[in-house]
Measured scan of single mutants.
Amino acid sequence: MASQGTKRSYEQMETDGERQNATEIRASVGKMIGGIGRFYIQMCTELKLSDYEGRLIQNSLTIERMVLSAFDERRNKYLEEHPSAGKDPKKTGGPIYRRVNGKWMRELILYDKEEIRRIWRQANNGDDATAGLTHMMIWHSNLNDATYQRTRALVRTGMDPRMCSLMQGSTLPRRSGAAGAAVKGVGTMVMELVRMIKRGINDRNFWRGENGRKTRIAYERMCNILKGKFQTAAQKAMMDQVRESRNPGNAEFEDLTFLARSALILRGSVAHKSCLPACVYGPAVASGYDFEREGYSLVGIDPFRLLQNSQVYSLIRPNENPAHKSQLVWMACHSAAFEDLRVLSFIKGTKVLPRGKLSTRGVQIASNENMETMESSTLELRSRYWAIRTRSGGNTNQQRASAGQISIQPTFSVQRNLPFDRTTIMAAFNGNTEGRTSDMRTEIIRMMESARPEDVSFQGRGVFELSDEKAASPIVPSFDMSNEGSYFFGDNAEEYDN
């Protein structure tokens, strides 16, 4: 783990906690998980779902989305002020799938948001429990990260689609708070800032007046979040320049895209947490497990152990491969979309394939898809080993990566060399080191050039047997250095459309 220093740990961010010791953190995270579980059980009762239907990941996603929508204050306010045809701002819903006479049927349900809020609060001892809501947002974000390569979004903001390893959390809503900021990748933060800068260039009043003052505060806050992700002084200094700019424009845009590229080699610290679907927490609570009393951590053995003992089902389209669908969801559960496939294969105990080789589309089923041909199958979400999630980018030494994705962002704290394609990355730096950030740029390029592919990161860190909950005997895996390590390699994943 990167030293926490003055930073709060993510469990504290996750639970809005002030400084807590490890036991208190485990208890408050457990409380959050228990609340999600209780809410899910109650919703299944309301909807009269069978046990099997309640364990269907598509039903879980609909129920999670309903509660997130019920608590989305800004959108609710907007919907009330701008009524649109056929949208009731006070209601929320989605597809629920039921097994009827041996076939899967889709039923569109509609609930009062007020009623959903009441059920959620009741499951969370009367609190709004925003930490639990954020947790579900991060699960949705991790699922998107594993399912889609955001080529269009990258290109629109002047970045290269091969930089997708920097895009963790790119679909997280803005209201996801400190826990959300911690899991956002460098590219995601750059993209958010670039969008602001572009608006400022096109709209003279963007930075002016009372609204402009708020915009400015948001801009500086985002700059500080991004600065905190960088691990070298030169990158941090460049972020200070971007933040202090009187009138952010093209120079800042250039600096930010430069920094994003540099992060492929001088990786930023991005938190990883295993956020599971509500249909995993519900049955665990129903079986009598007391998360608050037992304590829970999002970055240790607990999620692995929970998945070892969970039964989750998914709808499967006619030509999809259930094992591939399982891999997709497994990666999402562990926030591992940008991790090295060699490491993932070792931990999972079966070969993890790149996205383009998977015969599976996303987990969600569109409303126009034919239910007649839908089957369902068990998702295999178990693992051979477990490993500690990392909050750091690993040290800054790398190795060759593949054509589709030119770097990785480690999820697990496991000893290995970190793949990246130096030639491709360095070719993108057209040696432009003039301007006010020239000395920093020169320094950053120097550090990137001296990074050695064969150097090892996370020295001495290994994986653990599932029986080793105290992480007492690390097993340090050895990897084939020459092997392909990137998930979005030469990829044809669908595009994420909101």
Rank of each mutant, 00 (worst) to 15 (best):
I63E: 04
Y97F: 15
M239N: 05
T15W: 00
A472D: 06
T6I: 09
T378G: 00
G404L: 13
R400W: 08
M167T: 09
L379T: 12
N430C: 15
N432R: 04
M136N: 10
M32L: 11
R38K: 03
S3F: 15
V352H: 00
G300V: 05
N76T: 12
G268K: 02
Y10D: 02
R261H: 08
A278G: 15
G177T: 03
N101L: 07
K214H: 08
S473M: 05
S478L: 11
I138R: 04
L49Q: 00
A251R: 02
N142T: 07
G349R: 10
V463R: 07
R355S: 10
T157V: 15
L358C: 07
R261I: 07
F429P: 01
E495F: 05
K91S: 10
W207K: 02
L193C: 05
G288L: 05
R156A: 05
R243T: 09
A271K: 08
D302W: 11
K214M: 15
M1V: 09
A2N: 00
A131I: 02
W120G: 08
N370S: 13
K184W: 12
S450F: 06
R118K: 15
P410W: 02
Q459L: 14
K198C: 05
N370P: 00
A428P: 07
Q399S: 14
K357S: 15
G185Y: 07
E114H: 10
I406G: 01
K90R: 05
N59S: 12
L298P: 11
R175L: 04
K77W: 08
I406R: 00
V183E: 00
R389D: 04
R121G: 06
I365L: 11
E339M: 07
A284N: 00
G431S: 15
T390I: 13
M371S: 13
D51I: 15
F206M: 13
D203C: 03
E81F: 11
E220K: 13
F412T: 01
G288E: 13
I119Q: 06
M167G: 06
Y97S: 02
T171A: 13
A178W: 09
N430V: 11
L266N: 08
N59W: 06
E24H: 02
A27H: 13
K227G: 06
S402Q: 09
R121C: 15
L256K: 07
A70I: 03
A123M: 10
G490F: 05
E294L: 08
G394D: 04
E292D: 15
D240P: 03
E18A: 15
G5M: 02
P248L: 09
A284W: 04
R317N: 03
S314W: 03
G177H: 07
D455I: 12
T396D: 01
M167N: 10
V183G: 07
N370V: 01
S310Y: 04
E73H: 11
I25K: 09
A181E: 03
A218M: 12
Q405R: 10
V285K: 04
K7Y: 02
L381E: 05
A218Y: 08
T396F: 14
L56K: 03
R118H: 09
M481D: 06
Q20H: 09
G17N: 08
C275S: 15
E375C: 06
E53Q: 11
G490M: 08
P283Q: 15
E254Y: 09
M66R: 06
E294G: 08
D72R: 01
S438V: 01
N211Q: 04
S402E: 09
Q311K: 09
P173K: 00
A471P: 07
L256F: 10
M222Y: 09
K7N: 11
A284T: 15
E53W: 06
G228C: 14
V312W: 11
M189R: 04
R152T: 03
S9Q: 14
R400K: 15
N368H: 11
A336T: 12
R199L: 07
K348H: 14
R317E: 02
G282P: 00
G404M: 05
G431K: 01
F258C: 08
T378S: 15
N309V: 13
E64Q: 10
R355F: 04
Q409H: 11
H135Q: 15
I63F: 15
R99G: 09
A493Y: 12
F458P: 00
G393Q: 02
T350Q: 00
K273S: 03
N397E: 14
I265P: 06
T92Q: 05
T6N: 10
R216I: 12
G282I: 06
A2V: 15
T6K: 00
A178P: 08
M222R: 09
D72C: 06
Q415E: 14
P83C: 08
V29S: 02
W207T: 07
S176V: 13
S473Q: 09
E292R: 02
E292T: 13
L110G: 03
R208E: 04
N432L: 08
H135V: 08
K184F: 03
K48S: 14
E380G: 10
R422P: 09
R38P: 04
